[in-house]
Nucleic acid binder design. Structure first.
Lengths: 198, 198
DNA sequence: CACAGCATGTAATCTGTTACATGATTAC
DNA sequence: GTAATCATGTAACAGATTACATGCTGTG
């Protein structure tokens, strides 16, 4: 997948590995991320394949920047990947759900602490997504891309909102189970926005 | 993560690799999956670590079944993993979103075909989750686990419902963009439940 | 007897993470 | 000057997928 992300961005304009890393951190982070080590090695591999070409860092560039450009061969590889649609549901991995699945014998207080902290993290993530707005300033040729960038951001917002709701319900469920047949309020009601106190 | 899933299941009762694979396919599939090759090698590794013990397949068992049991050391490893809560948002990977992100210059018809097919898949997945109901028949000692199993299933249902909604909106958006300032219905309106016709 | 399912493994490869390593530039 | 950021790489390791490989059992 990473090769196509790099090809995709380089189809907009030539860039260095460092710039690609930053772009991914800003825009694809919530559905695909990569460490710089993987990006640099993948770029080299794509150049060997002939899908990219890089210009040797200029001698007067002490930062040793290597800019990559997409080749015609790279463009058609990207295009034929896009033309071959995804025909399956991709499987995902959620460590949090693994933990919840095997939490039946944990202390309710420990579970609650974890769920409340996760709720806080996902709420913050949601707020951050709500502030983001994709744009291609000064690139009218990329205007048609913007609605698709926004679509992926919208997915992120809906996903985080769903997770926050689910966590709220799980927190309520565990709290309800903790004091069965009781209705006393907690002596020190927990704010779900406190720092994790582990 | 896989080691803890195996430990978690084996904390319920001794099992073979094959049974663990089936259990995962039935219950953790939507938040963690593994191929049998990885399960068998991981079980061996956990035995070397002393977290599991296996009994040699009985001589009279032509199927060569090897049953694993959790050790005390394995139980405490599982427990201390559960006691160390997850303090970050886990990053996820969504190939579909990568494709959508770089779909700005694709043919609307190709995008629509893909989105509609994905919608169909996720709708089916949602219906399948709605029919599922976690239970521990004949194991009253596992009753307390059931609500947590159900919680992860509930996550799956909400996730698939969210994805279907999002796909509906994206399909509508692309359709609206395809015939700007027009309101003629399609000559052959597409059923979103047809087989993929690629 | 053929085929689906039971049952376990190894090997090669690919993908991804973490750690190690280096050096320049910019802002304070 | 010192810390953050720019910028690129290698190496070791861990995690995951795909292919290869084998043999038994039960059903039609």
């Amino acid at each position: 997948m990473l090769p196509y992300i790099l090809l995709g961005f380089l189809s907009y304009q030539p860039m260095t590995g460092y710039e690609l890393k930053n772009l991914m951190d800003d825009s694809t982070q919530h559905f695909w991320h990569a460490h710089h080590s993987q990006i640099y090695t993948t770029l080299r591999r794509l150049e060997e394949k002939g899908w990219l070409v890089s210009v040797e860092p200029a001698e007067d560039d002490p930062l040793n920047r290597r800019a990559y450009s997409i080749t015609e061969s790279g463009r058609s590889a990207l295009q034929s990947w896009l033309d071959k649609p995804l025909l399956e549901i991709e499987s995902s991995k959620h460590a949090l759900l693994v933990r919840v699945f095997f939490s039946g014998s944990r202390e309710p207080s420990g579970i609650l602490r974890e769920l409340r902290f996760q709720r806080q993290l996902h709420q913050q993530q949601l707020e951050q997504y709500r502030e983001q707005e994709p744009a291609a300033p000064g690139r009218p040729d990329l205007e048609q891309e913007v609605p698709f960038w926004r679509a992926t951001l919208d997915f992120g917002r809906r996903y985080e909102a769903m997770v926050v709701d689910w966590l709220d319900d799980q927190i309520a469920r565990v709290e309800a189970g903790r004091r069965p047949a009781m209705s006393f309020p907690d002596a020190f009601p927990n704010s779900s926005l406190e720092e994790y106190d582990a």
